[in-house]
Each structure stands twice: as C-alpha cells, then as structure tokens.
C-alpha cells in the first residue's frame, strides 16, 4: 500500500492541479444546479455530490479508457470526474436536447459513451448487475478492463448487491464495488437500517477482499484506489471498498435535513476535501494562493458557460418523444 501521507508529493503538479480542478468543477456545478432548481430551471429530483468529491475524483483518476463506470442517481459528480463536459450535464438538467441524454434522462440518468459511463440509475441497487455485466464483457473480450460500481450505503442491504458479489466472485469478474457511505439512506441513519455497518466485512462472505478508508481524504482515496485498481486489473478478482464520506446537502433538494444536526454537518465541512487539498498544495508550494483563486474563478466561469449553454439550448423537438424507444424499426410499433 502506498503511503497516503506521501501520495500528494508523489504526484506531479499537473496531476494534482487536474484533480483539484475536477473537484472544483463538481462543487460549482452542483451549487449552480441547486440555484437553478430554486429558479425552477430544473425540476424533478436533484441529488448533489457536494462533500463527496474526493471519492469520485480520487477513484476515477485510475480509470483507463476501456474501463466502465456505473452509479446511482447521485451521478453528476462521477460524470464530471470522468471528463464529461459540464455543459452536457447542465443541459440535461435543464431538459434540453443538447444534454448528455438528449433531455430524456434528467438528473438521475447521466450517460457518456466515450467514457463507458453506463449511467446514473434511479432504483437503489438496480445498477449492480450492469456493473458486473461490464466486468463479464471484459473477460469475454479479454480487454483487461475493470468495472467501477458505485453505490450508496443504503444499497448495501438490497439483495442485488449480495447476488452480484456472489456472481462476481464465483466467476472472477474484475468488478470494484465502491460503497460511498455518506451515512444516511435518505433520512435514515445507517445504524437504523444496516445490521452490520462494517460494510467491507461483507466481502468476506463471498470470498472477496474488503477495504475501508476515509473518503474525505483525497490523498487516501487516490493512493489506496491506485493500488486496488492495479490489484483487480491483475488478479481479475472483485473487491469491495467502503469509503466513509459525507454529503453537505440533503438527500435531494426537497430534504429539510431534520434527521441530523447542523453541528454534525459543520464538523464535516471542516474536513472538506477541496479545502484540504488546496491548503496542502499551497503549503507544499505546488500552487500559490493566487493560483488557487484563479482556479476557483476558472471553474465558476466554466459552470456559468454551462448554464448559458443550457439556457440557450432548445428543448427536445416533439419527434424525440417516440425516438429511441427502440433502435430497430420493426414496423407496426
């Protein structure tokens, strides 16, 4: 295992700047989306990734082009971490035809073909099968890919996790099960929902390795995930990773947060991954205070561009209504 303390020093300045930029893009994107929701530009559900940036960015820094990623409805952060343009995401939230899913998916269903991003999915635990299917394909085609399967703590008590861990272990599928434990399944604290909250320990039941670490610490996520991804790519054995993290905002925008205290939220904000990484980079003289401010400005401007793009984009034309129900035209349909 790489020394997590040394992780940042071992990375090039360019790599660290890229990581910080991505975290800033996600943070700004999500903050802007909440505002746009309040302005009624966005409707439906909106589950933001604010607070969890280190998990997605630190993990997906190790993704190779042939690898695939699937996740839950809290999907904006991962799509942006993969490099999907913010304007495609924002236009999707605005229900515009220029969105990543042509305005048909919305907040919970971001997809990106060039990144093998197999979607945000709206049913808790519904995406596990897709993830092991991608891992299965990798073995079928022998393309040395791995499959990143993200899910929340609430999904750990769905049957699908247990079925798919069994299948992945039984068939040696290169699947990385990543639990982003933000400690609440909607408004239910884990202790009220999960009999055994040591989530990584569930791996043992399926003959898999399990890992637990701090998802608020970018160094730790990046360092340990680097080793884990290498391990899975080489061994073709699935693993279960439990990362403890926190979301500052509600489960969705309609969440008043009555199930937790302001003090609790504030405690986590002190561990904010963006603050931590930027402080450390400045202390290590990777960047200056001014450079950091410029990065913040750049991220904000990028999101403003995305907002403008979404605003100016057209709604899907009505012929989109029946388009993409099927790929093949079989007549009669």
């Amino acid at each position: 295992m790489a020394s997590v303390k040394k992780e940042m020093q071992s990375l090039s300045k360019e790599k660290m700047v890229e990581i910080l930029e991505k975290m800033l893009v996600i943070r700004n994107f999500e903050e802007a989306s909440i505002k746009a929701y309040q302005q009624k530009k966005i409707a439906g559900f909106l589950h933001t990734y604010i607070g969890q940036e280190a998990v997605g960015v630190g993990t997906l820094a190790h993704k190779l082009p042939q690898d695939s990623v699937v996740t839950t409805y809290r999907c904006h952060g991962l799509a942006l971490a993969l490099g999907m343009p913010a304007k495609e995401g924002m236009a999707e939230l605005f229900g515009k035809v220029t969105g990543c899913a042509r305005g048909k998916g919305g907040s919970m269903h971001f997809f990106s073909k060039p990144h093998n991003f197999l979607g945000g999915h709206g049913i808790v635990g519904g995406q596990f099968g897709i993830g092991i299917g991608a891992a299965f394909k990798s073995n079928y085609d022998e393309d040395n890919a791995v499959s990143f399967i993200f899910f929340g703590d609430g999904a750990t008590v769905q049957g699908t996790l247990h079925e798919t861990m069994n299948l992945a272990s039984l068939w040696d599928l290169p699947a990385i099960f990543i639990c982003e434990d933000n400690q609440y399944g909607m408004g239910t604290a884990n202790a009220r929902a999960i009999a055994n909250t040591d989530i990584a320990s569930k791996a043992e039941a399926y003959g898999m390795k399990g890992y637990t670490f701090n998802g608020m610490d970018l160094n730790e996520v990046h360092g340990r995930m680097g080793d884990i991804v290498k391990e899975v790519r080489a061994t073709r054995r699935p693993v279960l990773v439990h990362m403890k993290t926190y979301r500052y905002t509600g489960h969705s925008v309609s969440d008043a947060g009555l199930y937790r205290t302001k003090e609790e939220v504030d405690t986590y904000k002190l561990k904010d991954p963006i603050i931590a990484v930027s402080r450390e980079m400045i202390e290590n003289k990777m960047i200056t205070e001014e450079e950091f401010k410029a990065m913040q400005k750049k991220a904000k401007a990028g999101i403003q561009e995305a907002l403008d793009f979404a605003e100016e984009s057209p709604e899907p034309p009505l012929e989109e209504l029946t388009r993409h129900v099927f790929m093949d035209d079989v007549g009669n349909a």
């Binding site: 899913a101 048909k104 997809f111 073909k113 197999l118 979607g119 993409h324 129900v325």
Partner: peptide
C-alpha cells in the same frame, strides 16, 4: 436506450 438518449 430511451433514457440514455440513444447511447446504449
């Protein structure tokens, strides 16, 4: 296929 806007 539909909710991915024809991507998958």
């Amino acid at each position: 296929y539909y909710m991915s806007g024809g991507l998958y």
